[in-house]
């Protein structure tokens, strides 16, 4: 019983960073621009957030500045894509590489460290504990005592769903993706709608990054994001930006990961379970690449 609960908790922990980033990616996806720069946004937010949480001794400052750093990257990304009409994939990948370089530079130049940053003064994100869950031991074990952004990421699924399908902003957002010329004809600015999608997307990716360093691991490492930005992109493409499908796909990845870490090495060679998330990624990209291409051509 305890093992099952610990397995479910691990699944939830492994799902969260993917889910949060993928929800952000969904905002851009439905507005017609895939977010390829999630890896870089997460990395820079993880670094800046961690630096602020140990220099100021406040997790609020860490969260705020980490997300702010990601938003700055998001705005730069938006300027290149929306204003300078640059190719979204080229700029996104460039930003990812550049953030890796900047992160390496900052920790070397200012902290004399090369691959990790670890401070005893770091004030990490708080662990949430709800007293009303204490009454049921199972719910208490399963749902209590998570780092702040884990429950928030699940709440954001509902929030994203409501924004997409129940608000005027959501309708404009989706219209900008599915029929940009109709949006232009009705007098709305496509650029404005997409810019807000870039910013919201960066906020979500920023929170995902901050969660990795300040919530999940408690340290910063250059290899911290470890491709999660790209898996998140695959999840977004897989669900065409639908938050419910994004949630399901993120859970599949999280559960597959948690399971792969628990299958004894003697039973199945560890490579096989570990392949699973990547096989899903490749399949998703193959399935969705047709869709992505037909979209780009309709835009020009």
């Amino acid at each position: 019983m305890e093992n099952t609960i610990e397995f479910l908790r691990a699944s939830i922990r492994l799902t969260t960073p993917l889910l949060m980033a993928a929800l952000g990616g969904a905002f851009m996806q439905v507005s017609g621009v895939p977010n390829v720069g999630m890896e870089g946004m997460m990395l820079i937010a993880a670094l800046v957030g961690y630096i602020f949480c140990f220099t100021t001794g406040s997790w609020v400052m860490g969260l705020f500045f980490g997300v702010a750093a990601a938003v700055i990257v998001g705005i730069i990304y938006a300027i290149f894509v929306l204003r300078l009409k640059a190719d979204i994939f080229a700029v996104g990948i460039t930003l990812n590489i550049m953030m890796g370089g900047i992160a390496a530079y900052i920790i070397r130049r200012y902290y004399d460290q090369i691959s990790i940053l670890l401070s005893q003064d770091a004030k990490l994100l708080p662990i949430l504990s709800f007293s009303f869950l204490d009454k049921s031991p199972i719910l208490n074990l399963l749902l209590n005592n998570y780092s702040l952004l884990i429950p928030i990421s699940f709440l954001l699924v509902a929030a994203t769903y409501i924004v997409f399908y129940k608000t005027p902003f959501g309708f404009w957002l989706r219209a900008a993706g599915s029929n940009p010329s109709a949006v232009s004809a009705s007098g709305k600015s496509i650029t404005g709608i997409r810019l807000s999608a870039f910013v919201i997307s960066a906020v979500f990716c920023g929170m995902a990054g901050v969660h990795l360093s300040m919530g999940y691991l408690g340290m910063f490492a250059l290899s911290l994001v470890a491709g999660r930005g790209f898996i998140a992109l695959a999840i977004v493409l897989f669900g065409s930006g639908n938050p419910i499908i994004v949630l399901i796909a993120s859970l599949i990845f999280g559960i597959a990961d948690a399971a792969s870490l628990r299958i004894p090495t003697e039973v199945i060679p560890p490579q096989f379970p570990l392949m699973l998330p990547y096989i899903i990624t490749i399949l998703a990209i193959i399935l969705m690449s047709r869709y992505a291409r037909s979209f780009t051509s309709s835009e020009q």
Binding site: L14, S223, A226, L261, P264, P273, L274
Partner: peptide
Amino acid sequence: IINQYAGTHFDPAKGKETALA
């Protein structure tokens, strides 16, 4: 003795999760 592999050399978050398991 439990012998377990994380499957990768470059993902500290997965290392933490493996250790917790």
